[in-house]
Design a binder for these strands. Structure first.
Lengths: 127, 127
DNA sequence: CTCCCCCTTCGAGCGCGCTCGAAGTCAAAT
DNA sequence: ATTTGACTTCGAGCGCGCTCGAAGGGGGAG
């Protein structure tokens, strides 16, 4: 039930190069190897990549992902710390969304200055 | 009425180095100079920086900002094109916000697996 | 006068996150 | 036997957006 690097690449949207890089970077436990040295990724590895890619997609730096991965390696006694880390990240992402929305408001104002004729979506009133 | 580079840096949150870089990069018209060669930024320059920094903050690459700046340089006959550019960017930002929110949902699920805030949840499986 | 500070140009360097290429191994297909 | 193709390691390189430092000038205070 294990997967080759190509299959994992396919499933995660990462390249094989990037998967090896993540391993080197300490984000992912070195997976098992088959008899001739090729990586065999477990479902657990793929699950880890699932959360890692979400963290990445929401702007967490590699160093933060590494910290998370290290906590995972230690064991269940780090649950609290992991939750803490994720909640902190969650707060940052919410803040970034809020900032984006506020920047967008100004940009939309600018659009309306250029004669926002065919506005595709009904949105917030502009002052 | 005009401002020195330090004053503009202060007002925009950019550094003097970055302001010169923006100028080199074609994002900002070369401002006037005073009698001894120092830059004197007009209110119009500062206004331009206002929109540029919002575009930047919402992830527009330098090349896109340059295109916008070039349209501005041409004249009022590019209003439509500028609006087009900004509306396209607006769509992209909205998409990014949506993506962030959906990624966040997964992260929040993970947080809840770790025993979201109030209730310690016994879930031994996932990393 | 010196000292200090802010400005100038120019070009090099950095941090991040990949991204790629070279060179090699191995197994199966032709 | 040769070719194909997926994999391996290693280290270098890239694209972006700054960021910085060197070297110099000019003006005002003490």
């Amino acid at each position: 039930m294990d997967l080759t690097i190509a299959e994992v690449a396919q499933r995660t949207g990462l390249t094989a190069h990037t998967l090896r890089y993540y391993e080197r970077a300490g984000l992912l436990d070195p997976p098992e190897r088959d008899w001739n040295g090729h990586r065999r990724y477990s479902e657990r590895d793929v699950g880890m990549l699932g959360i890692l890619t979400r963290l990445r997609a929401t702007g967490m730096p590699i160093a933060g992902m590494r910290r998370y991965a290290e906590l995972c390696r230690v064991g269940p006694e780090t649950f609290d710390e992991r939750r803490e880390l994720l909640e902190q990240h969650r707060r940052e992402v919410l803040q970034r969304i809020a900032d984006l929305q506020s920047d967008l408001t100004l940009i939309e104002h600018k659009i309306s200055v250029y004669g926002g004729a065919a506005a595709p979506v009904p949105d917030l009133a502009s002052p």
